[in-house]
Amino acid sequence: MTADPHSPADSASRSDVELLRAMAQGDTRAAAPFYDRHAALVFGLALRMTGQRADADDVVLDVFAQVWRDAARFDGTRGSVVAWLTTITRTRALDQLRARKRRDAAEERAVVLHDEPVAMGSAPDAPGEVLEAQERATAVRAALVSLPTPQRQAIELAFYQGLTHHEVAATLQEPLGTIKTRIRLGLLKLRERLAGHAPEAVS
């Protein structure tokens, strides 16, 4: 079986879990619709975290290769497919950041200062899904902006920039305990405010 870039319509209409199940059984045709559905999320997060297009590309390649290898290990009882993908993407992006640090000790991790993502490519051919994803992205950004600034800064540094709690505390010049509580409370507020925009539930 091959990774057909023009996957059959039935593949595109299958749920994420069904596509993962197919990949776990060696069906490479399931990879294309899965990629089309989630590439923007993986690429966007990787770009925000690494700050460099080439690194973001590498992260995307690594993430989907890992999804292919570990499809059978996805456990729907532990969370949604998007949550699983987010974890994999962050881990891979952190690997990139650490590798970059090792390559050049003087080099700091890149910070993408602007809040708006940079348009890097064309959207997949699914207007409904694209619109829905754009609405969710807008809602998330609005919710993030609506947080008290100290909470938003702490979350952004920890989640998007991959800083440890100690590094966040040093950057914001606040006590470590305050930072931990701030991140958690900010996340609780975000969850409340985004209650209607949760990622696709696992069936």
């Binding site: 990774a3 870039p5 490479t28 990879a31 294309a32 990629y35 089309d36 590439a39 923007a40 999320l41 993986v42 690429f43 966007g44 997060l45 770009l47 925000r48 297009r53 590309d57 995307v60 390649l61 989907f64 290769a65 532990r78 969370g79 949604s80 998007v82 949550a83 993908l85 987010t86 974890t87 993407t89 962050r90 993502p117 940079v118 348009a119 890097m120 490519g121 064309s122 959207a123 997949p124 994803a133 754009q134 969710r136 992205a137 998330v140 950004r141 993030l144 979350i155 989640f159 998007y160 996340l187 975000l190 969850r191 985004l194 925009h197 949760a198 990622p199």
Partner: peptide, 24 residues
């Protein structure tokens, strides 16, 4: 985990078209 997934969605950016071929 689900809140982090939403934060990730907030950054969604269309991937460069040529990347699809490389991934597949």
């Amino acid at each position: 985990r689900e809140t982090f997934a939403m934060l990730a969605e907030g950054q969604a950016t269309p991937a460069p078209p040529e990347l699809r071929e490389r991934v597949l």
